[in-house]
């Protein structure tokens, strides 16, 4: 049953991915990306990764969609049509994908309980068996995330912080004063509107 659900969700993902490729309207593509994340989050639940599903739903289809919409609201919504697609890129992608598929040929099959990843005595097995008595929290993911691999999470926090100050420096948090405002009009604005008028519109 679970595998069946996983297959159905994978098919959904494939359909959405095709939609993202062919859609020229960026707004639509962004919404589809959010949908993609949401379906992926559903699939993560099926595969027992509840924490990951939670995060993917909150971040992939929540925050990141908002960021995309924020960026799109003052750039163009439409991707310009282009002639033929790049053949080189296609070849590169096919070669890369072929290599990956070759690599999976002798990989442990989906769901196997005796694969190296599942049976490593110092990682997976130890975390499942003794994290409750060594660290405490019933949620093993929390134990591993905050204690066994707490240093990774420290790095993760640094990445978030880096993104924060990057946006701070690139965009700023305060509303720019009219004289600092860029001369370009965003789509949807009447061209040639003076900054004062723009202010009063809101």
């Amino acid at each position: 049953m679970e595998t069946l659900v996983a297959i159905v969700l994978l098919t959904f993902l494939a359909i959405v991915a095709v939609g993202i490729i062919v859609l020229r309207d960026l707004l639509g593509a962004v919404i589809l990306l959010g949908l993609y994340s949401l379906i992926a989050a559903g699939a993560f639940v099926v595969m027992d990764a509840v924490d990951v599903a939670f995060t993917e739903a909150a971040v992939g289809s929540g925050i990141s969609t908002i960021l995309f919409l924020g960026a799109l609201s003052f750039t163009k919504h439409e991707q310009k049509p282009r002639g033929n697609d790049s053949v080189m890129a296609l070849i590169f992608v096919i070669v890369t994908g072929g290599l990956l598929i070759y690599g999976t040929l002798d990989m442990p099959h989906y769901g196997r309980a005796d694969s190296p990843a599942q049976s490593h005595p110092d990682l997976a097995v130890r975390f499942i068996e003794v994290s409750g008595s060594e660290v405490g929290p019933p949620n093993i993911v929390t134990s591993v995330l905050a204690s066994y691999r707490g240093y990774d999470t420290l790095g993760e926090t640094l990445v978030v912080f880096a993104a924060g100050i990057a946006v701070l420096s690139l965009l700023g948090l305060k509303r720019r004063r009219p004289e600092e405002e860029s001369p370009e009009d965003a789509p949807g604005d009447t061209p040639g509107v003076k900054p004062d008028d723009v202010q009063s519109q809101y």
Binding site: G103, M107, P116
Partner: peptide, 14 residues
């Protein structure tokens, strides 16, 4: 000792 030598090869190239 890994039984998935192809996966190792792919990991190496990536």
């Amino acid at each position: 000792d890994s039984e998935s030598q192809r996966a190792v090869l792919v990991a190496f190239s990536f």
